[in-house]
Nucleic acid binder design. Sequence first.
DNA 1: TCATCCACTGGAAGCGCTTACAATACACTT
DNA 2: AAGTGTATTGTAAGCGCTTCCAGTGGATGA
Lengths: 345, 345
Amino acid sequence: MARKDAISLGHVPPTLDEVARLAGVSRATVSRVVNGSPLVTEATREAVERSIRELGYVPNRAARALVTRRTDTIALVVSEPEARAFSDPFFRTIVRGISNVIEDTDVQLLLLFAQGQREQAKVERYLRQGHVDGVVLMSLHGNDPLPLALTGAHIPTVLSGRPRPGERLPYVDADNRGGARAATRHLLESGRRTIATITGPLDMTAGVDRFDGYKDALDDAELDAGKGLVAHGDFSEESAVLATAQLLERRPDLDAIFVASDPMAFGALKVLRESGRRVPDDVAVVGFDDVAEAAGVDPPLTTMRQPLPEMTRELTELLLRRMDGLAGDDDFVVCPTELVVRASA
Amino acid sequence: MARKDAISLGHVPPTLDEVARLAGVSRATVSRVVNGSPLVTEATREAVERSIRELGYVPNRAARALVTRRTDTIALVVSEPEARAFSDPFFRTIVRGISNVIEDTDVQLLLLFAQGQREQAKVERYLRQGHVDGVVLMSLHGNDPLPLALTGAHIPTVLSGRPRPGERLPYVDADNRGGARAATRHLLESGRRTIATITGPLDMTAGVDRFDGYKDALDDAELDAGKGLVAHGDFSEESAVLATAQLLERRPDLDAIFVASDPMAFGALKVLRESGRRVPDDVAVVGFDDVAEAAGVDPPLTTMRQPLPEMTRELTELLLRRMDGLAGDDDFVVCPTELVVRASA
DNA sequence: TCATCCACTGGAAGCGCTTACAATACACTT
DNA sequence: AAGTGTATTGTAAGCGCTTCCAGTGGATGA
C-alpha cells in the first residue's frame, strides 16, 4: 500500500492556485499577471512574478483553452507522404514562410501528415477535437474530404492552391495557367515547334492548370499538342525521369519540353543528358516554381517563378484574419508568375 | 443589438450535455459510451450513438485533457533548420518509423522545429504547457537546453542518439564509434594508407563518435591521422562538397575518405569525379547510414548500415513505455552497425 | 468632513469532461 | 417473503483556468 503510493502519479506541476497562495493574492490576480492585464499594481505584479519563478509555474493550456476557446495553435496539413513532402523544396518554403509570419506572435505551428485514408481520418479527428484554431491545407489531391470536413466543423481553414469546384474556401494560388502559357509561349518564340510537356498530377488543381496553360499556348499558336507529346508526372523528380524517357521514345523529334515543376525539370535534364541530347541546343526545357536549386543545375534552368514567400505570407495572414472572423469564405489571392530566363531555354 | 447577436461568436460545437439530453440519459452515460466502457446496455449505447451522430458530436480534447491529464499526443522535436531536416533522408525515416508504431494507437504525432534560441524557447514553452504526453528529441546540437528543461519539467522524453555527458535520458543510438572504426578498417584492409575523413558536426555526439571511431582504427593500425586529412562537415551534402575540395587541395595524395554520413559521401563522390579521380581506383569512399539512395549513386556507395527502422521502433516504444512509467531514466539501446560493401570501396 | 469616484483585488461561476460514489432496479438465494 | 448480490445509471465533485461582478480602500471634490 505504501508501495502503491510510492509509485504515485508522477510529478504534478504547480497550479495557479499555489502561486496565488505563495504570493498571498487571489487566483484572479495571478491570472491577470500571467495574461499581462494592466489592472495590477507594480508591487503585486512583482510579488506574483517572483512566486511564479520560484515554483516554475507554467499555465496549463488545456485549462486555458477550455475557457478561452483558443489554443493559439495552427496546423499545416500536408496530404502527401512524408518522403515526397520532405524532398520537395516547395514544401520547405511554405513551412519556413509560415514560421516567419508567426514568429513573433505566440501562435505555434504544427505539421500534420495525412497520407492515406487512415491517417486522413486521424488527422480530421485530431483537428475537430479542437486542438487548433486554424488550418492550412496544402497539396490537396483528388477528392480529399478534409476541406469539406473542416468547413463543416467550422474550423477556420485556408488553402494553398485553388480549391476544386464546389468548394468555397479562402486560398492563395499562383497564376498557374497563365504562367504555363507564358512558359510555353517562350518556347514557341524561340522557334520550337515540337513541344512536349510533363504534367503534374491531374488530380491536383495546380497540375490541371499548368497543363491547361500549356494547351492554351499551343492553341494560340494554332499548334496541336499532337500525339505522344504529353507525359504525366507527380511533381517529383523520379516521376519525371520515367516521363522523359517515355517522351523520348515516343517522340524522338521533340525539341522542347515544358515541365510542370522544377524538381521534375531536374529529372528531365538528367535523362536528356544521358540520352546524349544537348540542352538547350537539341531540346529546350522550361520548368515551373523557380526553386533555389534551379540556378545551380547544369544548364541553369529557365523557369516560371512563383513568388512563394510572398504567397505564403499572404496565406498565413489570410488564415489569421479568418480566425479573427475578418476574412470571408471566398477571399482569395492569385499571384502573378514571372519568366526567369536562364540557359535551358 | 440584434445585429450584435447576429455577428455572434461563431459556431459552437455540441457538448456532451446536449448529447445526453437528446438521448435522454446522463452525461456520465454518454461519457461511458464515448470511451467504450463495458458498463452500458446495448440499447442505451445505441441511443447515445445515434444522438452523437445526429449532433455531429466530437469530444472536446481540452476538457478531457484537463481531467485525464493525458493528451494522446507526442512530439518529435528537431533541433535543426527545416531545410536541413527535410533534405536529410535520415529524418524522413524517423518520421515514418514513429508514424508506423503509433499508427494503430490513437496517439498523434506532432512535428516541431526548434532552430535558434527563439524557436527553442517557443517549443520549450509549448511542451511545458502540457500539449503532449511525451517527446522525442533528435539531432541535438551543442548544449541545447531542451533535454534538461524537459526532464526538469518531468515530461517523458527520449533521445535519438546518445545524450551528452551529464544528461540522463533514455535513448537509442547506433554504435557510431564502432561502426566508424569498422568502416575505416575496411579501407585499411584494402590497402589504403592515406585515409582522410569528413566528420560530422562536432557539437553532436554522432559527429564526435564517428570521428573517434576513425581515429581508433588509425591508432589500431599505428597510423597517424596526419596533417590535413581531417575536414569538417555538418552531415549535409553541401558541406561535404566544400570539405572534399579542401581535402583534395591539402592532400592530393589521399587514397581514401571515410565520410561520416551518406549525404556527405554523395557530395564527396561528386567533387572527386569533377576533379578527375576515379572511385574507388584512385580514391576509395565509405559512407555512413546506408540511406536508400546509397545503392543508386555512381559508383554505388560502400557504407555502414545502421538499422534505422528498428532503431526508430525501439525509440518510440521506449517513449511509450516511459510515458507509462515503465522505463527508467537510463534505459538505452545501442544497435550494432554493419558494413555494406558496394563499389566505392 | 462627507460623498463620490477610481484603481485595484477577491469571490465565485463556469468552460466540457471523467469518475468516484450513491442510487436504483431487478434477479437471485434461502 | 425478506435478504443479498449484480448490473446499470445518475449525482456531483473537481480538473486549472478566465472573467464578470462586487467589494475595498484611498484620493478627490464640494
